[in-house]
Design a protein around this nucleic acid. Sequence first.
DNA 1: AACTGTACAGACAGGTCTGTCTAATCGCAG
DNA 2: CTGCGATTAGACAGACCTGTCTGTACAGTT
Lengths: 185, 185
Amino acid sequence: MTARDRILNTASGLFYTQGVRAVGVDKVIDEAKVAKATLYAHFRSKNELIEAYLRHQASQAREDLQRIERDTPPGTDRISAVFDHAAMAADRPGYRGCCFINAAAEGLDSESRASEIVAEHRELVLDYFVRNVDAPTLKERTEVARVVMALFDGAKVASVSEGSAAFETVRRATLALAGSPTAVR
Amino acid sequence: MTARDRILNTASGLFYTQGVRAVGVDKVIDEAKVAKATLYAHFRSKNELIEAYLRHQASQAREDLQRIERDTPPGTDRISAVFDHAAMAADRPGYRGCCFINAAAEGLDSESRASEIVAEHRELVLDYFVRNVDAPTLKERTEVARVVMALFDGAKVASVSEGSAAFETVRRATLALAGSPTAVR
DNA sequence: AACTGTACAGACAGGTCTGTCTAATCGCAG
DNA sequence: CTGCGATTAGACAGACCTGTCTGTACAGTT
């Protein structure tokens, strides 16, 4: 495992569990067993490391979605699978909610591209919902997808205090909506 | 206006727009035109100031909900009013999402009572929804309220990137759900 | 006039942060 | 073996952080 990977993996863990602002580069190099100069050889600044962390998480989440689309037949099952996936994450120790919501919540410099990375990923997830939601027209699918996205984000927020149980109730309503959207329009 | 109020008001503004971690006490005393000793005379530590900030926001939100319940007839109108209120907040300059979600997202010391204050407030909002949602039994109202809460939180999260428009689509679905919950169960 | 409470300005200590730098060491290709 | 790129440990500068402290000013009360 290259030094760069070790740095990025360690930073990802620390940034997620403690927040990007609470973790200094010293803590990262300490845990990654790496010299400070090495970190700065691979990442020009801490900001760049944070951006790499977010891109890393985004690409991982993207792969998860692709895997679900490969393994699960179209329809509401694919929505359900996403909820299952999130609920399982919420049960892992050290869970602290959605890394993108959290990163957006921590005030980052306006010069940082972090918020763009988050916004980009959110669009990707929205597109996933648009593809896998049941409604006649694209316009309607987009509207339903936005609601599904809100339900998903809301469940993630609630799960921080309430654990994975937060996904159960919300999932039922989401599936009903995504399966026969006319019921609530 | 007493020095304490000036400190708390200034701190609230700074903590909200930049994040509690990004704002130092020096920035607060500078903008509040207050001596550092005065701040530490009223608040034992920065942590205590943060807690006061969250309690302040919580009591303000509580009053908003009470005002709505006083001025709005029971039923889904009271749900709609909450969404209106949040949408208006999202249009104000400097909007940065829900202060409670953001505070929970910033990693705070485990010794801080901040997360308890947030959790308490979330329960209060949930109770509001339970009271004002339409379903026959308490158990069902609670379930529906949890979904409404998720929709509300999700809309707030989305509004950070997408502005107040995020509340429009979500509101429609929420009102349908809160008005005739059997449609999605 | 003396006392009390509150606020002021600002220095200070002790720590942490990011980012740079030096100098030594390692592994490996030629 | 030689040379080179990558890595190491750690000192360092300069900024910022929280919290404490000294000393002063001023209003209201006794």
